[in-house]
Amino acid sequence: MLKNHLRRDLQWLKRQARRDRRITLALLAGVLAAWGRQLAPWPAPPAESQVLAGLSVGLFAGSALTWLASAYLVTRTIRVRKEPVEDVRRASRVIRSKEWAFWSASAYVAWHLLQFVTALLLG
């Protein structure tokens, strides 16, 4: 009886990991496309707002670092392994990768809000 429950839970964990990996890949692609669209004509910051320029660069760097961490973790889950312990580790990596992808998207949203508030205050 216990083996059946464990087998069922492991199958559920595998399905959830596949679903989370798809979400992560969509988030990573979306953040990359959004940054590419936003930064194509990089606007020069005004000379009087060095603090805002520093915040903007910091948010961009934070988003880029969390994006790279998420991409690294999700690429470590590509190869399928045969042991159940490896499936649990793989699911853990996918969950962490999804968290990092959401952090990257959050940094992008914060950067976008900073640009909006800066335009309101300086414009």
Rank of each mutant, 00 (worst) to 15 (best):
Met1Thr: 08
Met1Cys: 11
Leu2Tyr: 12
Lys3Gln: 13
Asn4Met: 07
Asn4Glu: 09
Leu6Met: 11
Leu6Trp: 04
Leu6Glu: 06
Arg7Met: 06
Arg8His: 13
Arg8Asn: 14
Asp9Phe: 08
Leu10Ile: 15
Trp12Arg: 10
Trp12Met: 03
Trp12Phe: 07
Leu13Cys: 03
Lys14Val: 14
Lys14Cys: 06
Arg15Tyr: 05
Arg15Met: 12
Arg15Trp: 06
Gln16Ala: 08
Gln16Lys: 13
Arg18Glu: 13
Arg18Trp: 02
Arg18Lys: 14
Arg19Trp: 00
Arg19Leu: 14
Arg19Ile: 05
Arg21Gly: 03
Arg22Tyr: 02
Thr24Gly: 00
Leu25Gly: 01
Leu25Ala: 08
Leu27His: 01
Ala29Val: 02
Gly30Glu: 01
Val31Glu: 05
Val31Gln: 01
Leu32Gly: 03
Ala33Met: 14
Ala34Ile: 00
Trp35Gln: 00
Gly36Val: 08
Arg37Gln: 05
Gln38Met: 14
Gln38Val: 06
Gln38Glu: 05
Ala40His: 14
Pro41Cys: 02
Pro41Gln: 03
Pro43Glu: 08
Ala44Phe: 13
Pro46Tyr: 01
Pro46Ser: 15
Pro46Phe: 05
Pro46Gln: 15
Ala47Ile: 09
Gln50Trp: 00
Val51Cys: 06
Ala53Cys: 12
Gly54Tyr: 07
Gly54Pro: 01
Leu59Lys: 02
Leu59Cys: 03
Phe60Lys: 12
Gly62Cys: 05
Ser63Ala: 05
Ser63Pro: 01
Ser63Thr: 08
Ser63Ile: 00
Leu65Glu: 11
Leu65Thr: 11
Leu65Phe: 04
Thr66Ser: 13
Trp67Gly: 13
Leu68Arg: 15
Leu68Ser: 14
Ala69Pro: 01
Ser70His: 04
Ala71Ser: 13
Ala71His: 06
Ala71Met: 15
Tyr72Thr: 10
Tyr72Met: 14
Tyr72Lys: 10
Tyr72Arg: 08
Leu73Met: 12
Val74Phe: 05
Thr75Tyr: 12
Arg76Pro: 02
Ile78Lys: 04
Val80Leu: 11
Val80Arg: 11
Val80His: 03
Arg81Asp: 09
Glu83Leu: 11
Val85Met: 07
Glu86Gly: 14
Asp87Lys: 11
Asp87Thr: 04
Val88Gln: 08
Val88Trp: 09
Arg89Trp: 05
Arg89Met: 05
Arg90Asp: 00
Ala91Glu: 06
Ala91Trp: 01
Ile95Pro: 00
Ser97Pro: 10
Glu99Trp: 00
Glu99Ile: 12
Ser106Val: 01
Ala107Glu: 04
Ala107Trp: 12
Val109Thr: 13
Val109Lys: 09
Ala110Glu: 08
Ala110Met: 10
Leu113Tyr: 10
Leu113Trp: 12
Leu113Ala: 15
Leu113Ser: 15
Leu113Asp: 15
Leu114Arg: 10
Gln115Pro: 01
Phe116His: 04
Phe116Leu: 10
Val117Trp: 06
Val117Gly: 02
Val117Asn: 04
Val117Cys: 10
Val117Glu: 05
Thr118Asp: 03
Thr118Tyr: 04
Thr118Glu: 06
Ala119His: 07
Leu122Ala: 15
